[in-house]
Design a binder for these strands. Structure first.
Lengths: 219, 219
DNA sequence: CGCGTGTTTGATAGCAATCAAGTTCTGTGG
DNA sequence: CCACAGAACTTGATTGCTATCAAACACGCG
């Protein structure tokens, strides 16, 4: 197994218990496989579908005409995505590594499980999404490069129960999520490592050595 | 009347027709008045309430411990807000100027109008919210100061049908929305004015002189 | 008319971007 | 199993944008 190219569901689902409607997607969703960097949906597609990560990881991205890119979020096993649109998606979604996803048509879920069940399911996912985005807004608008990277590592570490956290994304993806350049991300990682706050055995996995310090730096 | 301290509903609602459930809030909402800078809800309050602006304008803000502030959104007459939370608000909301708001308890609306009506209402508002936030993420993460200010002015101008657009917020609020300092916002405004792209008769109102250029600058 | 708040303008500093090599990692084929 | 090529990451030097510090200006209000 190559570091970072797979991201096992066993590991990930353990610490991310499914939502209040655990079986909803499993029951009505179609299982789909995607390779690394493969597109799951595009910016202009109609948005009747909802998605849940089974294994692997997903990013949603928005591009500017000149190529600048902003990653809206990363999704891990158990996470629901694809709700972030009105009539059509504003972001596209791609697999970060080999990824398995459940896809369900909203209408089909309504017919099979009832409108209420779906709406509760979507409401939960949406609340999480709005929450996440608000943190992200504050991070992008008001945090320094160091604070951004510290916040990000802390978030990834908290998602994992293991002491060794895996990064399913590369430095460029981190940079596009944090509103930084790849070089700055790299420098901040080095800096945090030099300060013995985190330790990277490889560039795709790390341990938090000094959690208090990391939290302080992340504000 | 002091420039910018009031923001008439007649002017604002004209171009912001209410949503698919036009009377929902008007029917069940309690009318509330807030003075400039008065708090409408706080970060820790429980979140069973939904709000709609009648007149005036509202900002949602998030503070860091050291005082750095990020404004999540501005809401104008017709806009629904207060949906941006799970169990408790993550942002607080304050009136930008003297403001009238309709407040309704979700439960009350459910009882009176039915769960479906409320859920459609909230779904619409939420979709708008997610959309807005995605634009905001891209703006904060990847746009330059000039692009940020141009985007912002364009957004405000588009919201208004009148050729003369009113800004209900001051420079500091703009800065905290755009992830800039007040000085940088001021400089960019001056720059856009010098280039004859916009014109500010006062610092709270402006006209777009060269829309194509403004759009180009906003990317 | 003068004060205070909010805005603009100016000078300087600093953080992160850019440009440019190196270095390590990864995957492939001999 | 090792050698090599390409990609990803790190490190270094420099630039440049935006923040910071500071002062002047404008406007609304008492």
């Amino acid at each position: 197994m190559t570091t970072g190219t797979t991201f096992a569901i066993e590991q990930a689902t353990a610490f991310r218990p499914s939502t209040e409607a655990p079986g909803l997607m499993a029951q009505f969703g179609l299982r789909m496989d995607y390779a690394r960097d493969e597109e799951i949906y595009a910016q202009e597609e109609e948005a009747d579908l909802i998605y849940q990560v089974v294994s692997g990881a997903v990013r949603t991205t928005r591009l500017m005409s000149d190529g600048r890119r902003q990653i809206g979020a990363f999704y891990y096993p158990g996470d629901v995505f694809g709700i972030e649109k009105g009539e059509e998606h504003r972001f596209s979604a791609e697999a970060l590594c080999d990824t398995v996803v459940l896809v369900a048509k909203r209408n089909a879920v309504v017919l099979a499980a009832g409108r209420e069940a779906l709406e509760r399911f979507i409401a939960t996912a949406t609340a999480r999404e709005l929450d996440r985005m608000q943190d992200h807004l504050l991070l992008l608008g008001r945090k320094t490069a160091c604070e951004k990277v510290a916040s990000f590592l802390l978030e990834v570490a908290d998602r994992t129960k293991q002491s060794l956290a895996e990064l399913p994304m590369g430095r460029q993806d981190m940079a596009d999520y944090l509103g930084l350049t790849i070089e700055t991300v790299s420098r901040m990682v080095t800096q945090l490592q030099t300060a013995a706050i985190v330790e990277f055995p490889t560039c795709r996995q790390f341990m938090v050595r000094n959690r208090a310090a990391l939290e302080r730096l992340s504000q």
